[in-house]
C-alpha cells in the first residue's frame, strides 16, 4: 500500500517536473533573437509573406496562447512541425531516439563492466599497490569529463592507431535495409555480424568516452561498499567455513554491496544520456543530441522544444525505473 502511494506520488512530481521543463523551454526559446521564419524564406520575401508564415506556425499569438496550443497538441501526440526540416517533430525525434538510446545503453554496459571489474580488482588486492593504482586511476578518470575523453580517444584510436571510425554511425555501403532505427539491436537479431562489427566500430569511441567517468564512479562506490560489507559478521562466517576469497567477494559480499551503487548509477546514467549531446556532435553520430544542436543553430523552435521534452522524459523515466528496481531488490523497503 505504502509502495503504491509512493509510486503515485512519484508520478505526480514527475508530471510537475515535466510541466516545469516545458514552461521554461517555451519561455527561453521564445526570447531567442533571430526570426526563424525569416530565415526559411528566400531573401526577396515580403513582410506579408513573413507574416503569413508566422501565422501558419502560430508565432503571431501571445506566448501564453502558443503554449496552450502546443500543450493541446502534445496531449494528442502532436509536437508541431519542424521549421528547418519541414517534417513533424514527433517523427523526426523518434527517428533519432534509437541511435541515442543504443549509444547510451552500450556506454552503460561498458561502464558497468569496467567499473565492476576495477572494484573487484581493488577489493581482491586490497592493501596492495594494485588497490592504490585502482584508486588513482578512478580518481583521475572521474575528474576528466566525457568531452575530453572523446578527444583523447580520437587521437589514440583515430589517428595514432586508426582502428575505429571517428565519425558517423554506420558505413554508407552497409546502410541498407533496416526495418527499425535500432540498427545494432536489429543487426544482432538478424545475425548480420558484418553490420554489427561495423556499428560497433563506429560506436566504440563515443560509447567509451561516455563510459569512462561513470566507470570511475562505479569503481569507487562499489569498492567502498564492498569494503564495508567485507567486515560484516556473515562474511567472516563464510570465511571461517573455508570459502576462498573469490567466492566470498563475488557470492557473499557483492549482492549486498550492489544496492547503494545501483541508486547512484541511475542518477549518473541520466548524466551520461545528457553527455550524448556533445559526444554525438564530436563524433558526428546521427542521434538526438546532434540534431538538437543543429536545431538551436537553425532556431528551429518546435524541434528544440520536442527534443528537450524528450530528454526530460527520458531522465525522469530512468529515475523512476531505478527507484522501482531499488524497491524490488531491497527486501527492507518492500516490507516497510
Amino acid at each position: 500500500m505504502t509502495l503504491l502511494r509512493k509510486f503515485l506520488l512519484r508520478l505526480i512530481t514527475t508530471a510537475v517536473t515535466l510541466f516545469g521543463v516545458a514552461v521554461i523551454v517555451f519561455i527561453v526559446i521564445r526570447v531567442v533573437p533571430g526570426n526563424p521564419i525569416a530565415m526559411m524564406l528566400p531573401p526577396g520575401a515580403t513582410d506579408a509573406d513573413i507574416a503569413r508564415l508566422q501565422a501558419q506556425y502560430g508565432f503571431d499569438k501571445s506566448i501564453f496562447e502558443q503554449f496552450l496550443i502546443w500543450l493541446g497538441g502534445v496531449m494528442q501526440g502532436d509536437f508541431g512541425q519542424s521549421i528547418s526540416l519541414r517534417q513533424p517533430v514527433s517523427s523526426l525525434v523518434l527517428g533519432r531516439l534509437p541511435a541515442t538510446l543504443e549509444l547510451s545503453v552500450v556506454a552503460l554496459m561498458i561502464a558497468v563492466v569496467m567499473g565492476g571489474a576495477l572494484a573487484l580488482l581493488g577489493t581482491l588486492y586490497r592493501g596492495t599497490r594494485t588497490e592504490g593504482a585502482v584508486d588513482i586511476s578512478a580518481g583521475m578518470a572521474l575528474s576528466i569529463p566525457d568531452f575530453l575523453w572523446g578527444l583523447v580517444l580520437i587521437l589514440l584510436f583515430g589517428v595514432l592507431w586508426p582502428v575505429f571510425h571517428i565519425s558517423g554511425r554506420i558505413s554508407p555501403a552497409l546502410n541498407t535495409d533496416f526495418a527499425t532505427n535500432f540498427y545494432l539491436f536489429e543487426a544482432i537479431l538478424r545475425l548480420k555480424f558484418d553490420v554489427v562489427a561495423d556499428l560497433i566500430a563506429h560506436m566504440f569511441m563515443p560509447a567509451l568516452a561516455l563510459a569512462i567517468p561513470l566507470a570511475a564512479i562505479i569503481a569507487q562506490l562499489l569498492k567502498q561498499s564492498l569494503k564495508e560489507t567485507m567486515h560484516l559478521d556473515y562474511v567472516t562466517l563464510a570465511r571461517t567455513k573455508g570459502y576462498n576469497e573469490n567466492h566470498i567477494i563475488t557470492r557473499e559480499a557483492l549482492p549486498n554491496a550492489i544496492l547503494p551503487t545501483l541508486t547512484l548509477v541511475g542518477v549518473q546514467f541520466t548524466f551520461l544520456i545528457g553527455g550524448t549531446v556533445i559526444i554525438e556532435r564530436l563524433f558526428s553520430y546521427e542521434g538526438l543530441g546532434n540534431m538538437a544542436i543543429d536545431a538551436v543553430i537553425n532556431r528551429d523552435l518546435p524541434l528544440i522544444q520536442g527534443i528537450v521534452i524528450l530528454f526530460a522524459l527520458l531522465f525522469t523515466l530512468v529515475n523512476l525505473v531505478v527507484d522501482m528496481l531499488y524497491a524490488v531488490l531491497n527486501p527492507r523497503l518492500r516490507h516497510a
Binding site: 521543463v21 527561453v28 531567442v32 544520456i273 543530441g289 530528454f311 526530460a312 531522465f315
Partner: peptide, 18 residues
C-alpha cells in the same frame, strides 16, 4: 528537480543562443 531534467550541454547551448 526541473533543472536536473535538462541535458546541461543542450541547456548551455540554448542559453548562449538566447
Amino acid at each position: 528537480d526541473i533543472w536536473m531534467a535538462f541535458p546541461p550541454v543542450l541547456f548551455a547551448i540554448l542559453l548562449i543562443a538566447v
